[in-house]
């Protein structure tokens, strides 16, 4: 077994989010224990005080909403070899970044007394604040996908991940297409694969949490949604949940 000195140092950082992605990692249970043999966890800001050591790989979840968080990231960038945004919030802003334009209004409505005084800024993905080396999207992330990426990152190599739309993954599982056979507004054709088609496999249309596939033909899908009878608002909301920022 590695001694603690030569194990790569891993830091896990949670910004504004539901902590769902760090939970996915802590839920690895026995795998987590074995992961601790391979890496040294130098930070886990939701559960323990910092060891003060610099991480080789910093996994950051959550969107940036506080000036503190931005400052923290800038300092982290100087120390960490790799900054990896994990989870949709960190990658693209996620659910917390929905409808950012109306944010001030919402704050006033929800917190009538104190809303005006909140210091929170518009939620931003980590990559808007500091350069990010790699993104592991998903709401929440997919453990197998993360482990696959860690396998590469621990070798100092940029991970090779599926670069195709979710439909290919969905079809590899032999699923009945929800868009084609059930008229459900699935975002699979325009969304990055990697989740193993977890929604369509149980009969629910993909919400696009892995973000856009690089060659997504959104216009063509919108056209299909229209023909299915979806209204413009409904269509906008489909894309607005995760897919589009």
């Amino acid at each position: 077994m590695n001694t603690s000195n030569d194990r790569p140092k891993l830091g896990l950082y949670s910004l504004t989010s539901c902590s769902g992605d760090i939970l996915e990692i802590t839920n690895l249970e026995e795998d987590l224990l074995r992961l601790l043999d391979v890496v040294e966890v130098v930070d886990l800001n939701v559960a323990m005080p910092s060891t003060g050591k610099s991480p080789d790989i910093a996994l950051v979840e959550g969107a940036v909403t506080q000036p503190d968080e931005a400052r923290f990231l800038r300092r982290l960038r100087k120390k960490a070899k790799y900054i990896v945004s994990i989870g949709t919030c960190a990658c693209t802003g996620g659910v917390v970044a929905r409808g950012t334009k109306k944010r001030k209004e919402w704050l006033r409505e929800v917190y009538p007394e104190t809303g005006e005084g909140f210091t929170s800024t518009f939620p931003r993905p980590v990559g808007d604040v500091v350069p990010v080396d790699f993104s592991v999207p998903g709401c929440p992330i997919e453990r197998g996908y993360l482990m696959h990426c860690l396998g590469y990152l621990l070798k100092g190599v940029t991970p090779e991940v599926p670069n195709y739309p979710l439909c290919m993954e969905c079809k590899m599982k032999g699923n009945e297409c929800l868009l084609r056979y059930r008229g459900l507004p699935c975002l699979g054709p325009v969304t990055r694969a990697g989740c193993g088609a977890r929604q369509p496999s149980v009969g629910r249309p993909c919400d696009g949490c892995f973000g856009p596939y690089e060659d997504a033909n959104k216009e063509a899908l919108v056209e299909i949604f229209r023909r299915m009878g979806l209204g413009e608002d409904e269509i906008r909301m489909r894309f607005d949940l995760f897919w589009e920022r």
Partner: peptide, 13 residues
């Protein structure tokens, strides 16, 4: 190609 989603389904099946 304007209509095609480039979703790859046709190839998979």
């Amino acid at each position: 190609s304007q209509r095609c989603l480039f979703c790859g389904s046709c190839v998979m099946v």
